[in-house]
């Protein structure tokens, strides 16, 4: 299924205030890959993600999803195949109940109401929160909110999942549950995070951004264990890869 590849070619983007957020980014992600995007605050991670779903459009270069370039005209197609989970679930859960929220996307595609209901049930079931169906969002815990936010995207049946900081502000147990959940997904996954251990567990490939450019791109183990590179990009080697503070033994 090569048509689900995501291709970014010499992508440049400058915000209206003059800040150059992306300065020539290149990569190709193929179907079924799970890719972590890491980098310091302001390295351009979120800006990059917004280009993948067509919220922002490049000043220079191009983004292709499958063989379709991301432009204003192709948005309906792009958004059906690429689903984005935002960093703050409160921005994504904007309807008064969980059900209405998950149904928002499918309804926008004018699906018959039976199909909408079926999709909502499936999506909520997949993330394990079907019982929260009629709750208002403010009654959900952080982990539950995150799960519902993912369900809102799953209900659109995307091929690619794009996630911005999915483990931010989660307690350890919810974080673990989320990681297990995401491991079970067969979608192409693109995840930005500061949670190096999560990236280490979930993604076989990692792209490091620095000052709007790709400074490393390769197998996660190789990239994240490169202490020098990590320091240089204001990052850190995952704790899992660091020597044990008590016995000094190294895992690898």
């Amino acid at each position: 299924m090569s048509h689900h590849k995501i291709e970014v070619n010499s992508l440049k983007y400058q915000y209206t205030d003059g800040r150059q957020a992306l300065n020539g980014v290149n990569f190709l992600i193929t179907h079924g890959e799970s890719v972590g995007i890491v980098g310091a605050n302001g390295a351009g991670k979120s800006t990059l993600l917004m280009h993948l779903v067509g919220i922002l459009f490049p000043n220079e270069g191009e983004v292709n999803v499958g063989d379709v370039p991301v432009t204003k005209k192709t948005l309906p197609v792009i958004r059906q195949s690429v689903g984005m989970v935002f960093q703050n679930p409160d921005d994504q859960l904007f309807m008064p109940t969980v059900f209405d929220d998950v149904a928002f996307g499918p309804r926008n595609y004018q699906l018959p109401e039976e199909e909408v209901e079926k999709r909502v049930h499936e999506a909520l079931d997949t993330v394990g929160v079907l019982h929260l169906k009629s709750r208002p969002p403010y009654k959900l815990s952080g982990g539950e909110k995150r799960a519902v936010a993912i369900a809102t995207v799953l209900a659109m049946k995307p091929d690619v999942l794009v996630m911005d900081e999915p483990t931010a502000a989660l307690d350890p147990k919810s974080r673990r549950r989320l990681i297990t959940l995401l491991q079970g997904f067969t979608h192409t996954k693109i995840i930005t995070s500061h949670d190096m251990d999560m990236v280490f567990e979930l993604c076989e490939r990692t792209i490091v951004l620095k000052d709007g450019k790709v400074s490393a791109d390769g197998p996660t183990l190789e990239v994240l264990s490169n202490r020098e590179l990590m320091e240089d990009c204001s990052l850190e080697v995952p704790l899992t890869l660091q020597a044990c503070p008590v016995c000094g033994r190294n895992n690898i």
Binding site: V53, R79, M84, F86, D91, Q92, G105, N108, V153, M156
Partner: peptide
């Protein structure tokens, strides 16, 4: 951001 997330879901 809310608008973006709405648009991402076909709004």
């Amino acid at each position: 951001r809310v608008y973006y997330s709405m648009r991402c879901r076909g709004f």
